[in-house]
Design a protein around this nucleic acid. Structure first.
Lengths: 261, 261
DNA sequence: GGAGGATTACCATTGAGCGGGAATCCAGAG
DNA sequence: CTCTGGATTCCCGCTCAATGGTAATCCTCC
């Protein structure tokens, strides 16, 4: 791992540098970047220069650096996320148009939900999801849907982890959660009233890939006081099927047959 | 740079690796990756392992590697593209709904248009734009709008470059182009009939940032045989203003005043 | 069972990366 | 105008991480 005294590879430092940028720090001076990443000044400057040369970072007119356009381009071009997002977007718009609340698409990634797309109401109802944001599995409707459809070993390891109780409605008891997951798997959707934020409820349904596995969760966040939450489920389900089909899913026949044996 | 015989830095190799993935090659074996990048086998394997450890690459169930979820996440979280895209999306949907043809958002990046978002008709009318795809400036309506609003030194260097003539309507003569750019700048929009593909026409308008500079171009691609092309301009302009405003643009007052002096 | 490819293991060599220190540049305060 | 604190660039000797050959092993498909 590189000649560094700290024993890190360049790749590791690269990750550190890229991670230093986020919503509230979209660009910064190299010195600040060095501080945020904990890299020695000289090293930070040398590394940043290399990255600037390859255009993985760009330098703004104020001299501050930020994630490079080239970087976004390369990743977007090669990543499977974009395809999923593109397939889902039209259907998400339909949901958003009908439900009038923000609609999100999330995938399972290392014990959390990673939201890869989000559209809708900029202000209505409290919603803490962000594009490229993460939330815990057990405390979100999307997470529960994804967990419910994950391999059982994965489920168990997820349940074995300490589970934070965000509000009084957050389930944290493994056996209770296990029962809930079974229910979700059977019903085909998850409803979570006030799980992370008290005032909102989440509803989520699974999206299937060509091999009939669950690849994502489609969900809406609605104000908790709405009575007709279950009325929202059919729209979500229909749209999720639309997305699945766009991804190459060919109906649930195979799955049903397998189940009936 | 690096102990490599080829004299490349790790960063450079990293770029090579990431660049190896695209639409038609979303995942591949490490050996193939090595071949595509021209890296020595051993080096490719070692590098890929490092990247897998940091989750910048992920390994699929078939053993093939692809761009990692973490990579997409880090870049999306830190990049300014996402903000621009999010601001633009609702307005792009409006355009798409009204015009019924594919709508794109492009930015100026190293002598080309880089399309950062695209929605609409999956099949209607020929359109070769892709998200994270590039096209030459002088041969697209978006490119012309961006070029027309770029600093004049930039314009000159762009015009000095050899310009490919895609169809008989592509302007490649610098003086002629210069005149055309002035016209576009004054009118506030560009119309390009059959520039890259004969059957389609592009219409584009500028999107402004808070400092009143042009940050992107909003455009639609319509079949060339449509007569009412100019009728599409107002919708585009109104939507572009909406996007600009969402980005913090505060009207063209300052610009107008500056002009009138 | 064997041919062709992908993947892992081994290892001597070396120069790219490292980071401390000091000089320089720059902007805002006094 | 100078002073000051921060950002940035320059310099330079040390050293071990990265390199990339060769060869062994593991698969798969015919």
């Amino acid at each position: 791992m590189a000649n560094s005294a700290s024993g890190e590879s360049i790749i590791g430092r690269f990750v550190k540098i890229v991670s230093a940028f986020d919503d509230s720090h979209p660009s910064m001076s190299v010195a600040e970047l060095g501080r945020r990443t904990g890299l020695p000044v000289t090293t930070a400057y040398r590394l940043v220069n290399d990255l600037l040369l390859e255009r993985l970072l760009d330098r703004g007119p104020d001299g501050n650096v930020h994630i490079g356009t080239r970087m976004w381009e390369l990743v977007s071009r090669g990543s499977k996320m974009v395809g999923l997002r593109e397939a889902a977007l039209p259907f998400m718009e339909d949901v958003q148009a009908v439900v009038q609340h923000s609609t999100t698409l999330g995938i399972l990634d290392s014990d959390e939900v990673l939201y890869i797309e989000r559209i809708g109401s900029h202000s209505t109802s409290v919603d803490i999801t962000k594009i490229a944001g993460r939330l815990p599995l057990h405390a979100t409707s999307s997470g529960l849907v994804l967990l419910a459809n994950a391999p059982s070993e994965y489920q168990e390891s997820a349940l074995a982890r300490p589970l934070t109780k965000f509000t009084e409605t957050t389930l944290t008891d493994p056996p209770q959660l296990r029962r809930h997951l079974a229910e979700i798997r059977q019903r085909g959707y998850a409803v979570m009233p006030g799980v992370i934020v008290k005032e909102s409820s989440g509803i989520a349904v699974p999206v299937f890939g060509p091999d009939n596995t669950v690849v994502a969760a489609l969900s809406v966040v609605v104000p908790r006081n709405e009575e007709n939450v279950p009325a929202r489920v059919p729209v979500l389900m229909a749209s999720a099927r639309g997305i699945s089909r766009a991804l190459g899913w060919r109906g649930e026949l195979k799955g049903a047959l397998r189940q009936s044996r």
